[in-house]
Amino acid sequence: MTNKENTPKYHVTKKDLTRTSLRFNWICVNLFNYESQLGPSLVWSMAPLLRKIYPKDEDYKASLRNHFNYFNTTPYLTNLVLGTTIAMEERDGIKSLEAVQSFKTSIMGPLAGIGDTIFWVLWPTIMGSIAGYMALQGNPFGAIIWFGVNILFNIMKVWFFHVGYNSGTHLLDTLGNKINIFTEAASIMGITVIGALVATVVKVSVPFVFKFGKVSMNIQTDVLNKIMPALLPALFTYFIYKLLDNKKWTPTKIIFLVIGIALLGTFCGIFKA
């Protein structure tokens, strides 16, 4: 891949990398669209640096055209990818575009798997339940910690960009196998936490009292709780999970269905607020 270039090469500086990383992290999903997803954001954030790498208009245009293509993975880890592509384009110029594209396409699936599991499932779920229960008491301490960690995350994102630039292809190659194992391992933790959420966060109870002559029976406390705790939440989760298998039931439709059930149940006196 390493060919001698005729044009004098631009040397990407650390400042360039930090600046491009910050540009990306700032714009990020702001330009998200359904067709190319993060594509325009990649172009917008990298354009100034790519201009330095490609002094020729036609090359610059081709490089941007390449980055307008569909791309989506967890933004935190996108920094790693962009750092790597910058290194590739700096080294091989316009000849690298095909390699850049196939690198991006091949890496976004595995990275989304690991990134989404950690940054969008595990972290907000665990932190959210801790901070959420604190907040119910009127205590903002959990929220403040969360905000503090977000600052650290931002430093980490910029660091990822530098790591990607310095050892991107090498790092992702050696990780190759392990990325999937790591994602699966993180999924184990995620699924365990989700199991706990079903029992604690989903709240359905039927304080409905049956009366047979003089005997009255509370469905929730006398029947359901005797079978097992959190029975209804478990059944309800299973029902919605199955419903999602059906492509006709989009999440939005299901949300309205759930609200409908809640309203109807409350109207009939089955549920109580």
Partner: peptide, 12 residues
């Protein structure tokens, strides 16, 4: 009541 039920959608 819906507020107590809605997490189910995200979890599923």
């Amino acid at each position: 009541v819906a507020g107590g039920l809605l997490p189910v959608v995200g979890i599923a």
